[in-house]
Computed example of a mutant assay.
Amino acid sequence: MTPDPVHSWSAYPTSAAAHGSVRPVVSFGEPETFDEPARPGRSGAPVRRRTLAAAACFVLGAGLIGGAVAGSWLAGDSAEAGERGSYAAARSLWHSVPVDELFPPTVLGRGAGPGGADRLWTRIAVAPDSDCAGAFDPLLRKALAPVGCARLLRATYTDATQSYVTTVGLLFTKADAAAMRSLDSRFGKDNLDRRTDLMPRPYAAQDTVAAGFTNEQRASWTVSVLTDAPVVVYAVSGWADARTVDEPQPAGDAMRSGAGTAAAQAGLGHEAKGLADRVERGLRKSVTSPSERSS
């Protein structure tokens, strides 16, 4: 059966007694003894009752404890199964969700620009889905290797004035939740998302304003390792006139007040971060069960 092109990346109590309203009942019967054998003529029933009561309490207590332990096991299993289900659902999005849902033709970024200005990005090219060969600089490829590469999706956008171009990517990994958490921790601890030798590569599409968007034109970038889905989201931005950049700057730094680099002054950090954040939000909306989608 031929896949629908729009879905195909290859094609594109209280009681009264408690308040004293009932008098206590006092019994003057013969007291029970605990350290003497039953006297002749006594049946020994109290002793047997106490023994049975103690046994019943033991059984009840053991049952409660066992139930609590079993409940915790079941809860743990349920949480683990839910996590696996969520990851499995996210892992298949690259071929089960339409291109226009993951990378909308236009993306509105309210307050995403410098000074809280609105931004509007228009998609100008979508790369065919691929593996990760040639998509990353060698050191970034090595840093991402522990989570593997199941599929890579990329699209390039331009701003409303066609002054800037930004490639945004979704790397679908082969990793489980523990591996993604480990990678995220490493990126944060070692500042891997700020190193210029770990910048993502752009996608330059011929016959578009991004035709000259090559490695030398990279000005600002962001890399986000998700821990609730097996996906790495990234974006890299530059000028549409293909000018080279001597001092690229990570988006977080370029967005800081007072940043003086050319990339910061042009707002290219906002371009990369703003677009990546919105594509990530769209991805999260897609990670829903069929019942959630229909509700």
Rank of each mutant, 00 (worst) to 15 (best):
T122F: 09
F34S: 09
F172P: 04
P200C: 02
T261I: 07
V107P: 01
E32P: 13
Q206P: 14
A18I: 13
A210V: 05
V231W: 01
R110L: 10
A229F: 03
A276Y: 03
R110H: 07
R154H: 05
R278T: 00
A56E: 02
F172S: 02
S294G: 15
G63H: 09
L144T: 04
G260C: 12
A235M: 03
W221V: 04
P250I: 05
S286F: 12
D118K: 00
T214E: 10
L183W: 02
L144G: 03
T2G: 10
V26Q: 14
A205V: 03
Y203G: 08
P248L: 05
W94E: 04
G67W: 08
V168M: 04
A219H: 01
A125N: 02
H95D: 14
A235W: 03
E30W: 12
P40Y: 05
T214W: 08
P105S: 14
A79H: 11
L102Y: 07
G111D: 00
D277L: 10
D277S: 11
G267Y: 00
A145Q: 08
W121E: 04
A178Y: 01
T158G: 08
Y157H: 03
L275W: 00
A38E: 14
D228E: 05
A251I: 00
A204D: 04
T244Q: 08
S10N: 13
Q249E: 14
V69L: 13
D246K: 10
A251L: 00
R281M: 09
W73M: 12
R243E: 05
S27E: 11
L192Q: 09
D277V: 06
Y234H: 09
K174V: 10
G169R: 07
T33Q: 15
A68N: 13
E83I: 14
S86C: 13
A88C: 13
H19G: 15
L64M: 12
R284F: 11
D137N: 11
A242N: 05
V26C: 13
G67S: 12
G116H: 01
W121D: 03
D246C: 06
F136I: 04
V236C: 04
A56G: 10
R42L: 12
A38D: 14
A55K: 05
A55E: 04
D131Y: 14
P230N: 05
D246F: 09
S257L: 12
H270F: 00
T208L: 01
T214F: 08
A263G: 03
G66Y: 10
P98L: 15
T173W: 06
R256N: 09
R84T: 11
D77V: 07
R194G: 12
D131C: 13
T156L: 00
R42D: 12
G66E: 08
V147A: 06
E80C: 08
A259E: 11
F28N: 13
R42E: 14
W239G: 07
